[in-house]
Design a protein around this nucleic acid. Sequence first.
DNA 1: CCCCTTATAACCAGATTGACTATAATTGGA
DNA 2: TCCAATTATAGTCAATCTGGTTATAAGGGG
Lengths: 321, 321
Amino acid sequence: MDAKDTRKARAGRKANDVKADLIAVVVAVTDGHPCVLTIGQANALPSDPFEFDHRSLQSGLRAWVEQQTGQPLGYIEQLYTFADRDRIGAENPQRVISISYLALTRQEYARDSAKPCWGSWYDYFPWEDHRSGTPPVVLDVLRPRLIEWAQGAPEVEARRERQRRAAVAFGFDDLGWNEELVLQRYELLYEAALIEEAARGGQHAGALAPMPGRSMVADHRRILATGIARLRSKIKYRPVVFELMAPVFTLLQLQRTVEALAGRLVNKPNFRRLIEQQELVEETGETTTETGGRPAKLYRFRHAILDETVIAGTKLPLARS
Amino acid sequence: MDAKDTRKARAGRKANDVKADLIAVVVAVTDGHPCVLTIGQANALPSDPFEFDHRSLQSGLRAWVEQQTGQPLGYIEQLYTFADRDRIGAENPQRVISISYLALTRQEYARDSAKPCWGSWYDYFPWEDHRSGTPPVVLDVLRPRLIEWAQGAPEVEARRERQRRAAVAFGFDDLGWNEELVLQRYELLYEAALIEEAARGGQHAGALAPMPGRSMVADHRRILATGIARLRSKIKYRPVVFELMAPVFTLLQLQRTVEALAGRLVNKPNFRRLIEQQELVEETGETTTETGGRPAKLYRFRHAILDETVIAGTKLPLARS
DNA sequence: CCCCTTATAACCAGATTGACTATAATTGGA
DNA sequence: TCCAATTATAGTCAATCTGGTTATAAGGGG
């Protein structure tokens, strides 16, 4: 396991070479719709083979997505690196590593209008939008099928286990909805074969009941789920929402964007208090009447805040001060 | 950018094949010392070329580290995938992708005692241990050198900017120490050429003053910094500390482990309250007198908690209930 | 038997949070 | 013009959480 040893060993076996792909989850929010950039028939995330001349992963992705969308990317973050391609047909003899990224931008139509398009991510995950209460698909479709799946386990213990997992993931039995469990929910549905992608292996090749949500190529929907989960978590402790906003905005517009991402409604007065006390925004002095009733103050993001207090803080009960 | 297109295109250019390495940050805590598993002259993290027959990255790493350390790994999490190897001499014509992982275990001597060894991570980052107050190296060595570095900027604006960055990262000017900024501090020191790794490029090849902290091969120290930062953040919202504890432990032992990781002291009564109200532990009924004074109750981790309330919760001010 | 050390319990004030109520300023229509 | 509807913004209040301190219990060693 010495560095020299491994280097020497590698030279002999070309078989261990791999392909590397970059896959991007590019997100924008337009009037209440959290949108994701897709290609093809809106069933694939944009991806690009990793080129040798990329100076780094991050910069390579940035340049490429900016060229694709004609829009500067505000924020990029690495999501996850996938290599277990068990779920895809193993027709490809060479191993592929997918390095996935989350990128935030504002929606703009791409130059090459032929290919890329924006679509609400709730088209792919209709069970994730709880802004108007629990969506019907959860109670009418998923719940009965998940109960059925749980009953299908051979042993009593396994049945209980499945039921508990479903209840936690979807908030059954008054456990409450947790909007961050996007990936857990997707994987649970996959395991229960309630997701179209799960049927591709050929095991469940028969004619099945229609499955909820628009499917995607390969494991792209899983990657999208990872991105949504990450973003829903991140907006709570980092001011990344502003990357999705226009330069000036009203507090309600900001709130609507957060709600679109979280898939839940938030309490208006408390949301305002939260934003103001964190000093994340400053008034522009202008107001807008385009919102309907009383004119709303316009705000802009205080970019200085990024330098000042880099991180929210602690949850450890530190000693002395 | 269609899936078929890229597949077709790839077939023609073998040049874009890459090597993939797995690199592991394996952590254990032994009586107050946060230890990391190293190889060589304790200057490299264990790494392994990614094999074709690994079923997945995670399982491959788990099997390999368990074989290396003779110890079951409790927890594994992907850290980051690095591909920008600018910092290393570009002698290698082929691109290498490093997929790094964080793994938690309890310390045990490896079977093959020749190679792997455990060392305190504060040997590599002496400025990160604030349990006995701000360490001397920060005030006596780093601060003057960082000020010097800041003054070395050509323009006034750049000087201010450097000073501010140093102050935020190290808590100068009463900004307060933030233990999570491990990576930012390392990269700042690297940029200021106060890190041995930064001098390897040959730019600063002259005889230099000794630099703080034990250095590592390639960018391994940067990866270790990433792992420490991730762990320091994670212990605050996920019960991962218990992966580092013996099956039964006293609350003070648990506290000392957290303190070792965070590099800071915590308030004892408040720490106890935090642990108890989260119902993370249960009493075994036993006590131990090995701790010195009054016998301490022994506790064990409630594994059931992992199923029950998967995630701490929200910071969004949600509406209604 | 006293002192020292560690463990455990109880307490209190200030800050934060969740939920609700009241008032202000527009637009659009009667 | 004036009223109703709509949206914005300010304020209140109790419950909870947090940081910190103090007091008491239970062992070991001189």
